[in-house]
């Protein structure tokens, strides 16, 4: 199968993109065609993954990709149409028609469009694309096969540990049966300031979440997420939510007001699909 620039352009027009959106659409399509993203799985699975696209670098500002209020929609043409263009390519060019090749049991609204930008202007942290090996002045899109966003609330705490403890408690049992290849963690304005005010950078956030989202095998078996009889050692034997702290993608984005942030579980296993970052070329 080949995905030509002409076919991408046709679908981008149908989605309502402007011509200047095209480089970002092309980069995202390159991302889902990368073997590490593993199109076959998230393109067909009953797990119903969307393509979460996280935009970094100058292109986010140039194209007015929203990084603030109503992060996941509605209100911004770029966020709505770029993601829609990618989904149309998936169904019209790759054949991932819902109910036929795309067998998502439930799907989710992000399968229509799931585009956000990182709020680099206000973030105290290293941008996602720089952490993943790109220069700050480069523009990129990170594509992640993803379930819907889970919002959490904490307005009581004024420390990083407090906010992240709430987040970890929400995340511990989430996503698929046995953890996910990646999680995106979207920290909005109030939480961003609270967490960074405690001296936490993204590396510290990842380490805290990794250590505090482990679940005992006994709990997983009691709640019928893991097969087999409970053995005495299962009470202390733990399963981490992801294989490595680096599998958490930390993103500063969302509105300034409101003690809400979100996490987005990835799809499948690390062998099946991993987040991929692609440079946007003009």
């Amino acid at each position: 199968m080949s995905i030509t620039a002409e076919k991408v352009a046709v679908n981008a027009v149908m989605a309502g993109c402007k011509p200047q959106h095209m480089p970002l659409v092309v980069a995202a399509v390159k991302g889902i065609a990368d073997p590490r993203w593993g199109y076959h799985g998230p393109g067909t699975s009953t797990g119903g993954a969307g393509v979460l696209m996280i935009v970094n670098g100058p292109v986010a500002r140039e194209l007015d990709v929203n990084a603030g209020d109503n992060l996941f929609g509605p209100g911004w043409r770029a966020n709505l149409t770029i993601g829609r263009a990618v989904r149309l390519v998936m169904r019209n060019v790759c054949g991932s028609l819902p109910g036929l090749l795309d067998r998502g049991t439930l799907g989710h609204p992000g399968k229509l469009s799931y585009v956000i930008a990182e709020n680099e202007a206000e973030s105290p942290w290293t941008p996602l694309h720089v952490e993943r090996g790109f220069r700050a002045d480069q523009s990129t899109v990170t594509v992640m096969a993803a379930q819907g966003p889970h919002q959490f609330y904490n307005q009581l705490s004024n420390t990083a540990e407090g906010v992240l403890t709430t987040l970890a408690d929400d995340m511990r049992i989430s996503g698929g049966i046995m953890g996910q290849p990646n999680y995106a963690v979207i920290l909005a304005g109030e939480h961003m300031l609270t967490i960074s005010g405690s001296g936490f950078g993204k590396a510290e956030i990842r380490r805290f979440l990794f250590e505090n989202t482990k679940t005992s095998h006994a709990h997983l078996k009691r709640t019928h997420r893991m097969s087999g009889a409970i053995q005495p050692a299962d009470e202390t034997l733990t399963r981490p939510l992801v294989e490595s702290p680096d599998d958490f993608l930390i993103v500063a984005a969302g509105g300034r007001a409101g003690a809400f942030s979100a996490y987005v579980p990835g799809w499948g296993s690390k062998r099946s699909s991993q987040a991929v970052t692609v440079a946007v070329e003009k």
Partner: peptide
Amino acid sequence: VFELTGRAMAEQ
């Protein structure tokens, strides 16, 4: 339940 999907995948 995956009969049509299997056939579509084989065609693809």
